[in-house]
């Protein structure tokens, strides 16, 4: 196990390094993206532009720039080009929002996904199964931002049943926090509920046909017991994998669309603003932060997988 973890961590660091380098390369090729010109303002003098370029290290070879930037990121001194705010502290500031959004949505989509999947499997072929299947398919076919715009329009703008976007910190007012997040949670969860429900349904149906379930049936165990003890346990394993990866992606800035539509200033929103300003340092920060989560969670998932399914043990 230790060797396995060690290899994963090593791979993780390698992946992160390459990820950051790619982001860097993509952005140094942008023509007209010279941040010095923008910082110097509209009455800029040539000397001031050179001076800013020098200050930002933009006159260095690109690999030196990359190294400096990554170093600054890890020492927590990296600042944005557009307003010179500290990138790490801005990410920290966005984190409660993103965490609130993703944890809440995660609970909803995992809970409902499992519920829906099990109901559909147990009632396979019946009306409830068909209804769930149809809804799940529609759910996975909707662009998440469109659903968000629609919900916000119908429930917050046409009728003031929900707040019209925005975020209230949990520490400030828990009730308002909850109230403000209901729509974003639902928006983000819908797609996953549909997807998880469908995956779980087919997993359960597949498992039911496996030998050991048949054996259990033959031994005369109650159907409920078989379902919970044998079928669900096996069927949930792929769901755990999926959840780990999806949750990491959402946490790592993948909820950018939901955050944009509901004006939630989380990490994804920060990334979006940075891209709009062609502001490389925050983008670098968010990308690495996101990659970190994803790599971390995929490692965790592997570990959990090994724990849940005794048939698989990492070498």
């Amino acid at each position: 196990m230790a060797a396995f973890l060690f290899r994963r961590v090593l791979g993780m660091i390698l992946v992160l390094a390459v990820v950051s380098f790619i982001v860097y390369l993509v952005f140094i090729v942008i023509p007209g993206g010279d941040p010095a010109i923008r910082i110097a303002g509209r009455t800029a003098t040539q000397a001031n532009i050179f001076s800013i370029r020098h200050k930002l290290g933009l006159d260095q070879p690109f690999y030196v720039q990359w190294y400096d930037m990554v170093k600054a990121l890890f020492t927590g001194t990296l600042v944005s080009y557009s307003d010179q705010t500290n990138v790490v502290s801005q990410i920290w500031q966005g984190l409660p929002v993103t965490l609130s959004l993703s944890i809440g949505a995660g609970i909803i989509w995992l809970g409902f996904g499992v519920l829906v999947g099990v109901i559909a499997a147990v009632t396979a072929g019946k009306v409830s199964d068909r209804l769930i299947t149809v809804l799940a398919l529609i759910g996975v076919s909707m662009p998440v931002f469109w659903l968000g715009i629609l919900l916000r329009y119908a429930l917050a703008e046409q009728n003031s049943w929900f707040p019209d976007g925005g975020y209230v910190p949990l520490t400030q007012n828990p009730a308002q926090w909850f109230y403000h997040l209901i729509l974003p949670w639902l928006t983000l969860a819908v797609l996953f509920i549909g997807f998880y429900g469908r995956v779980l349904r087919s997993n359960v149906l597949d498992t039911i046909n496996e030998d050991y379930v048949r054996t259990a049936k033959a031994k005369g165990l109650s159907p409920r017991r078989i379902l919970v003890r044998h079928v669900l346990r096996t069927s949930l394993i792929p769901i755990v994998t999926l959840f780990g990866l999806d949750f990491a992606a959402v946490l790592g800035g993948g909820a950018i669309l939901t955050e944009t539509v509901y004006d939630l200033h989380g990490v994804g929103f920060y990334a979006r603003t940075a891209i709009g300003n062609l502001d490389l340092p925050p983008l670098m920060g968010v990308t690495l932060y996101g990659a970190l989560f994803i790599v971390l969670f995929s490692t965790l998932v592997d570990v959990a997988y090994a724990y849940l399914d005794p048939r698989i043990r990492p070498a």
């Binding site: 791979g11 390698l14 992946v15 992160l16 390459v18 990820v19 790619i22 982001v23 993509v26 952005f27 090729v29 942008i30 023509p31 007209g32 993206g33 992606a249 959402v250 790592g252 800035g253 993948g254 950018i256 669309l257 994804g268 990334a271 979006r272 891209i275 709009g276 062609l278 983008l283 968010v286 990308t287 996101g290 990659a291 994803i294 790599v295 995929s298």
Partner: peptide, 26 residues
């Protein structure tokens, strides 16, 4: 496999908009 991991390590949308924005400028 490492190459797959690399792409996999980005959230799709984040990677997409970073690349899309950078490339669509010029």
């Amino acid at each position: 496999t490492r190459f797959f991991d690399l792409i996999w390590a980005f959230p799709v949308i984040l990677l997409g908009i970073a690349l899309g924005t950078a490339l669509s400028i010029n």
